[in-house]
Amino acid sequence: MNQDPYKVLNIKPNATKKEIKDAYNKLVKQYHPDYYKEKHMKELAEQKMKEINEAYDYVVNNGKTKQYNYESEYTQSNSNSQNQSSGYDYRYIRNLIQSGRFNEARDILSEIKVRDAQWFYLMGVVEISMGNYNQGRVYFEKAIRLDPSNQEYQAAYRQTVNGYFFSRRAGHARTDTDTCCQVCATLWCLDCCCECSGGDFITCC
């Protein structure tokens, strides 16, 4: 089980005790196994109820319980004030990601104990690049929650759900070379035009 307990309960991380209780009661009413007659639906409802109960336990105990294996990232990120950087220099990890060494990047990221928005963003990139799309999407959501004003995180999330995460990343690289080629071609054309009309735009060629 690796789901966001707040998402399971459909509440905000800063929800009050009353809001948590109301959300829980609402979900229990909605998914209680006794409401379903079909055997398989009953089983499915039981599984759903288990998830809801675990999420509720986690939220109520504020992550102290070990039953809910949610990587205890909320505890760690909550120990920092939100939006605050962990102070870790992520440049090396970004380089690893850039060169396609995702396993190494994931190993190093996993060792970092204090997890800020950038940690979640980079972990999202790593997970998506390794084919774990849903997990990556969840990490992006967390990055945005911790730093809502960051354009990079928002763009990554948008590109993921709209299915152009990779082409946009490749596109950035391609656009740079395209611009360079365009400049060279334009200069060459200008030079030719000038030479045709008797002048010279670039004297060396």
């Binding site: 998914y31 709209n162 299915g163």
Partner: peptide, 28 residues
């Protein structure tokens, strides 16, 4: 699945919810 009484409706909804995966994978 638990929210939709008809399976066809549930399938339609799952398809809508999950198709981003296929498009992202195609892009990948």
């Amino acid at each position: 699945i638990l929210s939709y009484p008809k399976k066809v409706e549930a399938a339609l909804c799952i398809r809508k919810e999950e198709k981003w995966r296929l498009y992202l994978l195609l892009d990948h």
